[in-house]
């Protein structure tokens, strides 16, 4: 049976140099990149026959709904669970795996995406409920509203949109040219959450707070309109629309604030 060849960018720990290793594992039916990595765990030997530590990566659900296993597969950012070997290497081509570049590497293919969760705090991505006790049914909503909100709500915080965004700097890039002039851009994922919560019947009561959070430095205006985010989003969330909707609302709020002064 033909082998599956992998070339993997490894890094022993945070802020350490990276290096490449090649592996060859037996092919199986229905094989994805994760099952290839699992084979390396069972037999961590490189193509050259060197015994090495098994490759470290992050995965949880394996069905592209948790967002964990995001990495660069053949240079393209995506979830490795849905990266099927037969589609990537139908003629036995080598598959390359690298960690995402916009987040600090923890080890090998694992990166630390905590900035994305911090950004959810920054934009106050929640409904301010009065409490979890019984307060009767929620507000009525039209199906039309639900059909817009639900796709926005499928964001897995996977980081593909940040990885692909030219406005987002790589970690450790301290020079002014590598960073956007006005600080780190918050990115499409968090802006999309602003749109989602601001269209909820209860959430819109606090729309101004969320808009304030994405106005100014690193906010929605820093979007360079490259539209890479929507192109790489595995859930096909209309991120460009979300940025436009939030951008318009922010502009309106800014003008209104100026007029009221």
């Amino acid at each position: 049976m033909r082998p599956v060849k992998l070339k993997i960018k490894r890094q022993d720990g945070p802020r350490q140099p990276s290096y490449w290793q090649s592996f060859s594992v037996p092919w199986q039916p229905h094989m994805n990149v994760i099952s290839a990595l699992m084979e390396i765990q069972k037999r961590p030997v490189t193509e050259g026959g060197e015994r090495v530590t098994p490759v470290v990566w992050e995965c949880v659900c394996l069905e592209e709904v948790c967002g964990s296993c995001t990495m660069l597969v053949n240079g393209r950012v995506r979830q490795s669970c849905s990266a099927m070997v037969d589609a990537l290497a139908s003629n036995g081509e080598t598959i390359t795996l690298e960690p995402m570049t916009k987040f600090p590497v923890v080890r090998d293919l694992v990166v630390d995406r905590s900035r994305m969760f911090d950004d959810l705090k920054r934009v106050r991505a929640w409904i301010q409920i009065d409490g979890s006790h019984a307060l009767g049914p929620g507000p009525r909503q039209s199906s039309e509203n639900q059909e817009v909100a639900y796709p926005l709500s499928r964001c897995m915080t996977c980081g593909c949109c940040l990885e692909a965004c030219p406005q987002i700097a790589k970690p450790g890039a301290e020079s002014a040219t590598a960073r956007t002039a006005r600080g780190d851009f918050v990115g499409a994922a968090a802006i999309n959450q602003v749109r989602l919560f601001n269209m909820n019947p209860s959430g819109q009561m606090h729309a101004a707070e969320r808009l304030d959070a994405v106005m100014g430095e690193g906010g929605v205006e820093d979007c360079g309109k490259a539209q890479n985010c929507a192109a790489v989003c595995p859930k096909e969330i209309p991120l460009v629309d979300s940025i436009a909707v939030v951008g318009r609302a922010a502009t309106k709020r800014m003008l209104l604030g100026w007029l009221l002064k």
Partner: peptide, 22 residues
């Protein structure tokens, strides 16, 4: 029922009926 209502109040985008109910 109250658990589902609570989740709805938290913003879960449940599918709706034509009348806007769950």
């Amino acid at each position: 029922p109250n658990i589902v209502f609570m989740l709805d109040r938290m913003g879960v985008p449940f599918n709706r009926t034509p009348e806007g109910l769950l």
